[in-house]
Design a protein around this nucleic acid. Structure first.
Lengths: 147, 147
DNA sequence: CTACTTGCAAACGTTTTGCATTTGA
DNA sequence: TCAAATGCAAAACGTTTGCAAGTAG
């Protein structure tokens, strides 16, 4: 986990929330799977091993809280689930996603390539960008070669 | 409507579908509100004036078909509804969206500003982009001045 | 004619909520 | 101590589907 217990506890307390075992366990699952994009059901299943007492509603409520505290980001692939990923507090922007239309593979693009575009939005549209969501649909390397 | 009845009918027939009154009516609502982003419920309500006999399920099925025929684009603002907009067949790419986090206003950006980024994806990630979804969250001009 | 389409209502699956009980600080 | 958090089950919500009846070509 990137954040030690003391700092984590402070983050919750300072915002008027309690750091419960359940919340800590949910965050652990997400932090231990940084490269994955987990649905709430995925997280609930992962918890069932060590913390079978945690209810699904608690996972939903916790995820909402973690997102508010900016500890997780969400991505909606329009397949019926919202997926969650650990948000490194050191990263300034939500990263981009590459979605292969053939095999369904989902890849992250860490580099922020929208800074110039966002500058243009301010000039041309008088719009101040604070966050973004970019999904690129197409063919991954493997599927490009196999077609 | 950008497409005359004959061409529209051909588009449906050539793909093995029939151009029914219901489908024509749904497309008309979307085409007559090019600048808006209509939910299925919005479309259903708009139809109730002139075509009260059209059922909600038909609207859902028609929208799916229109999207398959590339006559409409969808945008998901993660507020529980998928919204639809007429897709000008002459536009090559899905346009971008500016979403004001203060007043909720939704604006379109017609200019495609991702061509260079998509070229970089091919070079750096070996990923061939075929479509994209870009949502920019922030402050519109009005809300920037009022804060 | 007849395969495709429709309208209705019931079903679906994810997410939210009400409420009594538990718990962190 | 006690407001906040939890677990459970029920409800909510947008969307999909089964099926009998209707219709475009």
């Amino acid at each position: 986990l990137m954040i030690d217990y003391k700092n984590l506890s402070s983050l919750f307390m300072d915002n008027g929330y309690k750091l419960t075992n359940q919340r800590h366990a949910v965050l652990n699952v997400i932090a231990e799977n940084k490269s994955l994009h987990l649905s709430v059901e995925d997280i609930f299943q992962a918890l069932n091993n060590k913390n079978p007492e945690i209810g699904l509603a608690t996972v939903y409520r916790t995820i909402q809280l973690l997102e508010k505290l900016r500890l997780v980001n969400s991505i909606n692939l329009d397949d019926g689930f919202i997926r969650y990923q650990f948000a490194d507090p050191e990263e300034r922007h939500q990263h981009h996603h590459l979605i292969c239309e053939k095999c369904g593979n989902l890849a992250d693009v860490q580099e922020d390539l929208l800074e110039e575009l966002e500058r243009q939005m301010m000039i041309k549209m008088k719009f101040k960008v604070r966050n973004h969501s970019l999904k690129l649909y197409g063919l991954c390397e493997k599927c490009m070669n196999n077609s």
